[in-house]
Amino acid sequence: MMGLPQKVRVKNWHPPGHVRAPMYLRGKTGEIERELGPFGNPEELAYGHEASRRRLLRVRFTMGELWGAEAENPADILEAEIYEHWLDPINAP
């Protein structure tokens, strides 16, 4: 999917059902902090299926990116684990 480090944007998907990409991160841009996994895809495991394996990535967001003017300190950081199929790479110009 991508090399490291790289900017990514979390997909702005809103499907029903069990997913692990939190709403407040969807559509937001961050940097890959480290690569984890692969792990079974929870979107399949939750329904009792044999799950495909997906890379899991820790993504680092700034509070400024997530909350804009409402951020307490825009340079503070939030990190979360996001499966690769929820991430779009943002290529450097």
Binding site: L56, M63, N73, D76, L78, E79, A80, E81, Y83
Partner: peptide, 15 residues
């Protein structure tokens, strides 16, 4: 203090 950076870790998956 403002000079300390806060890092919040959201345990969204397997870690």
């Amino acid at each position: 203090p403002e000079s300390t950076q806060v890092r919040v870790h959201d345990s969204t998956a397997d870690m």
